[in-house]
């Protein structure tokens, strides 16, 4: 069957099997391997992407279900060569070690900050509660999101980072 969807602002059309999962469509058909593929059971959350502006677990959505809809992946976080403050925050606060959960964490973090620019630690932890990190104990991820909240605009983030 043919599916057409918008991925990071670009319309794509492909022939797929109806059983194809969105995570494999993104990684294998579109080569967008920033979205990771983990537990296959909608538990670990490494496959989180946005569908129509809301984070979902792409291992539990068929590519067919996403047809006609808008998908945003971690590759779509950066704007015109500038990292999103969330991405900068993960660098600044060492929000990752192995990096496997990072793309999904950053997608839910961006979603949270868009709706709640100044979240409490508890709100940050609730927002990422559908995602598992085995390296950081979550502490540095929470710090990274807090960093991003303090540096709301991407340009502002860049200036501060590059300041002496």
């Amino acid at each position: 069957m043919q599916v057409t969807m918008t991925v990071n602002g670009e319309q794509v059309t492909r022939d797929v099997e109806p059983r194809l999962l969105l995570v494999h469509f993104l990684r294998d058909d579109l080569g967008l391997t920033g979205t990771h593929w983990g537990c296959d059971t909608s538990n670990c959350g490494v496959c989180a992407v946005w569908m129509d502006g809301e984070p979902v677990k792409s291992c539990t959505v068929l590519a067919a279900m996403a047809s006609g809809h808008e998908i945003r992946t971690v590759e779509g976080l950066e704007r015109e060569g500038q990292l999103d403050p969330v991405q900068e925050g993960f660098i600044q606060e060492h929000g990752l070690q192995c990096g496997f959960c990072t793309p999904g964490m950053m997608m839910t973090a961006r979603y949270l900050l868009d709706r709640n620019p100044h979240p409490t630690d508890e709100e940050i932890r609730e927002a990422i509660s559908g995602q598992i990190c085995r390296c950081t104990g979550y502490e540095n991820i929470v710090r990274a999101v807090r960093w991003a909240a303090r540096h709301a605009a991407a340009g502002q983030a860049r200036e501060e980072v590059s300041a002496p």
Partner: peptide, 9 residues
């Protein structure tokens, strides 16, 4: 029930 991402769907 589940987590925020699952609750979205």
């Amino acid at each position: 029930i589940a987590d925020p991402l699952v609750r979205n769907r």
